[in-house]
């Protein structure tokens, strides 16, 4: 059986699909968050070096992962939109940006809460903190550009170009800041294995999946709003709005 992907490239059909899928992802995210936080706060052992304060990683690390991953997904949708001129791709990019910015902010905020007891300072000009801050600036810039352009087609493409050039720049910014200064602890999870306790790792991975599902659910809800707004002159939207 083959799925006809092109069918779901049409906003009208995707509107229904997103509406059916969003609650599932939303509930799965809520359930996994409860499990992940339970493991994080009650099951996982106390860290012998960092004490109880390390538990912020169950929110901090998934948020930091998602902040970078969502930017790449957004740039990917932007590239697909520019290459194939599909309206829905641009709408997905727009729907993802606020969630990405939110996770970036959460990662910075929880990082500050962790930094105070660990490093004795809310903020240090460490490489990863700084590149995360610049990532937040990139998100803000793209959203500001979208907000400033009234014509949706021009806005879509302009934002997509900025997202792409930002995506090329992100690794350069990351390494430039890395060489500039580094204080953050090295990555605990490496391809060759991990230096973490298994329960801690499980809790963190569950939280990461929860963050993933949350992002999908929120992006679907948001993309449905964007579709309704853009397609408000069409027949099917009038039917949807009458039924509601």
């Amino acid at each position: 059986m083959s799925i006809n992907w092109y069918k779901y490239a049409s906003p009208a059909t995707f509107y229904g699909l997103a509406g059916r899928l969003a609650p599932w992802f939303g509930w799965a995210a809520a359930l996994l968050t409860v499990i992940g936080l339970y493991i994080g706060f009650f099951v996982a052992p106390t860290d012998f070096q960092q004490g109880e304060a390390y538990r912020v990683i169950f929110i901090h690390v998934p948020a930091a992962w998602m902040s970078m991953f969502i930017y790449l997904v957004m740039a990917g949708w932007a590239a697909i939109g520019l290459a194939f001129n599909t309206r829905l791709s641009f709408m997905m990019a727009r729907a993802l940006a606020p969630t990405g910015a939110m996770f970036t902010f959460v990662a910075l905020w929880t990082g500050a809460l962790w930094g105070k007891p660990m490093w004795g300072a809310w903020w240090v000009w460490d490489a990863r903190l700084t590149s995360e801050l610049i990532l937040l600036f990139l998100y803000v810039g793209i959203m500001a550009l979208w907000a400033a352009i009234d014509d949706p087609r021009r806005g879509d493409k302009a934002g997509a170009l900025l997202a792409l050039i930002g995506a090329i720049n992100v690794p350069i910014i990351y390494f430039s800041v890395q060489w500039w200064n580094t204080l953050h602890q090295g990555a605990s999870i490496k391809p060759s294995g991990t230096s973490m306790d298994e329960v801690m790792l499980a809790g963190m991975l569950i939280m990461a999946v929860a963050a993933w599902f949350y992002t999908i659910a929120v992006a679907f809800v948001r993309v449905r709003r964007i579709i309704l707004e853009r397609e408000r002159h069409t027949e099917w939207v009038k039917h949807v709005l009458e039924a509601a």
């Binding site: 600036f137 803000v140 810039g141 793209i142 500001a144 550009l145 900025l162 720049n169 910014i173």
Partner: peptide
């Protein structure tokens, strides 16, 4: 790039700053 993206927009100058300054970071460093 920023000047071309913000061409003819309201408040283009400030917007341009917002878009382009993060991209300048490696050059500055």
């Amino acid at each position: 790039v920023g000047a071309a993206l913000t061409l003819g927009l309201r408040g283009g100058g400030v917007l341009l700053t917002l878009l382009i300054l993060p991209l300048y970071v490696p050059a500055l460093i």
